[in-house]
């Protein structure tokens, strides 16, 4: 059976793609962010996952309001990145894992998740950036399965529901008849708000408590409604749902390999964690 090695979480911001393209990793503004990934990369070089399941939110590249799925599962042979309209360079396509995609889809529907399946799916910076951050030389997983969670249009799925989704994805992977090693990735957050008079909102104590909870008490955030999460973390901080799903997809306890938290990158409190399955 497939082996789940652990979970990786990170913030995503379009500007990170620009910084990578320009080689600004050691620039004083960016260094505290990029340096956080070093110890995680060492762990990944030892554990060598073959496949990544990526929980992320689309920012209006693949999905528009004409059709807005709550949970969309990639089932494509290849996933292309494309122009998002703001000038960050596009990255080369990633291969899919069709067998795992369908294993996940079959299992999720059997567990009463009414998902949307996508045999074509453009993936935006939220899905591609973690791969470039954790494996800067493209030495990482050779196949991916993107899982998109709607954070564009309310109502959003609850924290509790996203945890349940993550658990069910973890069950599907654990039951996959394969010798592959799989890593779960959550891409989003942490606290930030782009729009309105509250733009620039950041909540450091909440972010730090949330990061700690993923190790000690991974369902802690489920006590909050979506609007409470918006209030505590900002309208885009609610992307922490991706972290919850990714953590829940790793069964049982985890050991912290490394974490980092830095304010700000762009308008965002930027965090990352690498968690090894215990």
């Amino acid at each position: 059976m497939a082996k789940i090695i652990g979970g990786l979480t990170t913030s995503h911001v379009p500007a990170i793609g620009g910084a990578i393209a320009k080689g600004l990793q050691q620039d004083p503004y960016w260094k505290p962010f990029f340096d956080g990934f070093g110890p995680a990369r060492e762990w990944l070089a030892e554990t060598k996952p073959d496949v990544a399941v990526i929980f992320y939110n689309d920012h209006g590249l693949n999905f528009f309001l004409d059709k807005m799925p709550t949970f969309a599962i990639g089932a494509a042979r290849q996933y292309f990145n494309a122009d998002e309209g703001w000038g960050i360079p596009t990255v080369a396509p990633f291969d899919g894992s069709l067998d795992l995609s369908w294993k996940i889809i079959d299992h999720l529907v059997s567990r009463e998740f009414d998902v949307t399946t996508c045999q074509e799916m453009l993936i935006d910076h939220a899905a591609t950036m973690p791969l470039k951050l954790f494996w800067p030389n493209d030495e990482g997983p050779t196949q991916i399965v993107p899982v998109c969670i709607n954070t564009v249009q309310f109502p959003l799925p609850s924290a509790k529901r996203c945890i349940a989704l993550g658990k069910a994805v973890g069950e599907a992977v654990a039951g996959w008849d394969s010798d592959k090693k799989v890593v779960m990735i959550g891409s989003g957050g942490l606290s930030h708000q782009l729009e309105g008079q509250r733009a620039g909102f950041i909540n450091k104590p909440f972010d730090l408590a949330f990061m700690k909870s993923l190790i000690d008490d991974p369902e802690w955030a489920a006590q909050f409604s979506i609007l409470e999460l918006v209030e505590k973390t900002g309208t885009q901080g609610v992307e922490l749902l991706m972290w919850l799903a990714a953590r829940a997809a790793v069964p049982g306890d985890v050991r912290k390999v490394h974490s980092n938290y830095h304010i700000p990158i762009s308008n965002t409190a930027a965090g990352m964690m690498a968690l090894a399955a215990a």
Binding site: Q153, F154, P155, Q193, G196, Q197, R198, V230
Partner: peptide, 9 residues
């Protein structure tokens, strides 16, 4: 929530 309009229906 001050300065915030969730993008709902």
């Amino acid at each position: 929530i001050f300065g915030t309009t969730p993008f709902d229906g």
